[in-house]
Write a protein that binds this DNA or RNA. Sequence first.
DNA 1: CTGAAAGCGCTTACAG
DNA 2: CTGAAAGCGCTTACAG
Lengths: 340, 340
Amino acid sequence: MSTQPRLSMRDVAEMANVSIGTVSNVVNNPARVLPATRERVLEAIRTLGWTPNQQAQALRAGRSRTIGLAVMDVANPFFADLLRGAQARLEEEGYGATIGDADNRPAREEAVLRSFRDQRVRGVILGPIAALPREVEALHKARIPTVLVDRAEGGDACTVGVDDVAGGRIAAEHLISQGHRSLAFVGGPTTLAQVRDRREGAEQAAEAAEANLLAVSVPSLDFTSGRSAAEHITMLPVDERPTGIFCANDLIAIGMLQGLVAAGLRVPQDVALVGYDDIDFAAAATVPLSSVAQPRRELGRSAAELLIQELADIDGGLEHQHRTITYTPSLVVRASSARV
Amino acid sequence: MSTQPRLSMRDVAEMANVSIGTVSNVVNNPARVLPATRERVLEAIRTLGWTPNQQAQALRAGRSRTIGLAVMDVANPFFADLLRGAQARLEEEGYGATIGDADNRPAREEAVLRSFRDQRVRGVILGPIAALPREVEALHKARIPTVLVDRAEGGDACTVGVDDVAGGRIAAEHLISQGHRSLAFVGGPTTLAQVRDRREGAEQAAEAAEANLLAVSVPSLDFTSGRSAAEHITMLPVDERPTGIFCANDLIAIGMLQGLVAAGLRVPQDVALVGYDDIDFAAAATVPLSSVAQPRRELGRSAAELLIQELADIDGGLEHQHRTITYTPSLVVRASSARV
DNA sequence: CTGAAAGCGCTTACAG
DNA sequence: CTGAAAGCGCTTACAG
């Protein structure tokens, strides 16, 4: 490893025979500098391969151009799409994005948000995440605008989400319409508004139809949770076993499906199954999975849009009015819940 | 939004009646300051809720504590596990991590690496990514240590990977042992060493057994590529159609599986299928998918370890010796390639 | 149009 | 043990 010193604006200035202020101007206000000088500077930048130090830029300017994107689980395809929708829009506006993954663990979640704060990101998009009020409050106190994804109770922030109560309802209504009278909802953690809302919707539908609804709590929205919930359900006496199961997301549903099949139960003949998110894998599962679809990319894009607007308002010294965008989910029926 | 000024070390110093140097010391060298003073400062930090500005810290110290993790596709469960293995190890050492997603697009890939450079991250772990030599070279010139994941040809960097040639070979040998004489390899882009190596291994096995191997190139390692490759293959005249297909990763294989089934072909009766990565979904696919397993988390963890060592060497002024760690993949046989 | 100077929020020798 | 000062790499008025 060579011992060449690290490049700074100073080096460019020297090579081009100008002051660093002029280098800064060709980077930030090119029109302000004489074409000939500008060319000389650009030439020096190219030959040296210099690139402005963002940390210094942000420190001096008092604001960075980086947005923090926090999600509960990058391995969940739902979040991946959300991230991409958001990133695409941010990029158009010249913002960089840094992704933080909570790995389904509340402790990591706090760490991610704290790290965003310590990095002094310009704003945060908080994907579905338990989002301990304490840390969210800390972001607010640090004056870091935050857009909440998928949490209806906006409170003091812009919000984008889908109507999860409606989503839960259509899932349960569908199972009921297929003749099921004994339902189950599998999901968790209940610290997530999404989980509570989806269950709530399912409960509403069950009550309206006077059907039973068993609630099975699991620690996280992943495969493993689905498998262990399946163990629980397959061990129930047949007359207590639900025949229609609605899972809070597709990962749980796919884990559940594996567990049911492993225990010798047939889907949908013995147990019908509905998931949530309609990720690509849903259609490719052992038994193609019915699922409640959300406009994933759109959610991310809208979240970015709201944040961009808020930042623009702040930069412009305007009063900012928080907004809430709500999408309506829709049911995609496949074999896992087809009438037999 | 209140107009309170942003908090700085200065505010803490004033509240605690000390100089900012002392505040810095309680943060970085607590032993150096008198317990009574230390307490006063810590109290001020707590009541104000101040947190050091990492940009300023990094700028002053000349080095950040953030590592950039670049992957081709966060939506691919393989990468998610890789990231987590790496992050867990980095966290132990007090390094923060920032994730960059290339979204399977070469252009984004360049942007991710450039952004890491502009952010002046301390080091980079480059997950499988086409990794245009130009940008990698730029990192090197910027003296940002880089660990390459899954690229055998280390060159001027530490490297961790699996023996993909061996992986390709065992996949193809397995298909051959099941009686298949007409094979196909589906993968791309060939700018990826992984893809080339897996194909190479398959070719070796095919040649040794005097079996045919059709190579189908696809643009990226995802679902969609698998589906379109399936269209291509199902349209071949029956006598030219391969009966054993090895896909460069599980996402392609699952897309392929869907396409084959949609076209009325039976797996494994008409076509046997083997994927690569052994992601969770492999076992949960319509027909459980045989796959070549890699130690995903371990790969990430080892990459982090190598980077940590390299940084320690640099900090200690020691000569650094690049290392290469190679894991051996193993085949997991499931229904998609079972003898019928 | 260009340069000199101040300062963003920190850390790090160096005095005292 | 604590403080004053210099400086990391930039941007931004302000002179000239």
